[in-house]
């Protein structure tokens, strides 16, 4: 197990290094950064000044290694637009994105676990088909549009929930639901498939032969085994949700990391953009490692 974890850690570091390289290349794609930073009305002298000030006159390789060297120590550079440390900008916005992501994940699990179990227990009945249909509908739902519809319905017409901003926990309900929609189809299907497989297994026959209660058979014996892949995918889904929250943060005006990235893209603030890409990638890799660890906790055979 330890060996496995070390291997995973090495892969994670390699992934982080590759993403760093890609993020660097990405921000240099637009050609002359100095021109875009200086703005449309800048004179040639202004552009040269910007080029010098941001070190853009140096060779690309030296810019790259300079960035990598500092990023490793946690220094992600300085924002051109906000005139602040990128690391503190991200740290400031991260709690909102994390809260949103976790809210989405909790809602997704609260919906998909019961639905998946129900569908599995009632396999091939109308209920099962309805659940599978719900998963398909969820998969086809454009998240930003759902967000707007919820805003009109629950925010404006019913007035139950605040429309945008981050003042209270109520502000996270609608964005959380919208974000959850992206994970519900996969989690429901996986729960259903896992439960169907578990319920058909020999150890469930044993549990029934032991005369255990239905609740114990379903929740203690079947779900425990069916949950193993679900937990792994849930962690990965959280990673996707954090990455995908950019759209929802924009819809609901939640000033999280996604919103920051969106603003920075509009402002050609490339140190922020490349740092957010890097941070989200590192979080994703960390979450997949966490999933491996949780699997080992849930499945004694992996220990």
């Amino acid at each position: 197990m330890l060996q496995f974890l070390v291997r995973r850690l090495i892969v994670a570091l390699l992934v982080a290094a590759t993403v760093m390289t890609l993020a660097f290349i990405l921000t240099r794609l637009s050609g002359d950064l100095a021109v875009s930073i200086a703005g449309p009305n800048a004179t040639q002298e202004d552009i040269e000044l910007v080029r010098k000030a941001y070190g853009l006159d140096r060779p690309l390789t030296s810019q790259f290694f300079d960035w990598v060297g500092r990023a490793v120590t946690g220094d992600l550079g300085e924002s051109y637009f906000f005139k602040a440390r990128v690391s503190s900008l991200i740290a400031e916005r991260m709690p909102i994105t994390i809260t949103l992501g976790l809210t989405g994940l909790v809602i997704a699990l609260l919906v998909s676990l019961p639905l998946g179990i129900l569908a599995a227990v009632r396999e091939n009945t109308t209920l099962d088909r309805v659940v599978q249909m719900v998963a398909l509908l969820g998969q086809a739902m454009p998240s930003f549009w759902l967000g707007l519809i919820l805003m009109i319905t629950f925010g404006l017409q019913l007035g139950w929930l605040p429309i945008s901003g981050t003042g209270s926990w109520q502000h996270y309900v609608m964005p959380g639901i919208v974000l959850a929609f992206s994970a519900i189809p996969a989690l429901t299907r996986l729960t259903r498939a896992g439960m169907i497989q578990a319920m058909g297994s020999d150890y469930i026959r044993t549990a029934r032969a032991k005369g255990l209660s239905r609740a114990s058979i379903l929740l203690k014996h079947a779900l425990r085994n069916a949950a193993i892949p679900v937990v792994a995918i849930a962690a990965v889904q959280l990673g996707f949700m954090l990455g995908g929250s950019i759209v929802i943060e924009q819809v609901f005006a939640l000033h999280g990391v996604g919103f920051l990235a969106w603003e920075s893209i509009g402002k050609n603030d490339f140190p922020v953009v490349q740092a957010v890409v890097l941070v989200l990638a590192v979080i994703y890799v960390a979450l997949t490692m966490l999933a491996d660890l949780m699997n080992a906790v849930l499945d004694p055979r992996l220990r």
Binding site: G239, G243, G244, I246, V277, A281
Partner: peptide, 11 residues
């Protein structure tokens, strides 16, 4: 998989 699609596409 570790690269956030929407963000990178937007960028």
């Amino acid at each position: 998989l570790s690269i956030p699609v929407v963000l990178v596409a937007l960028a």
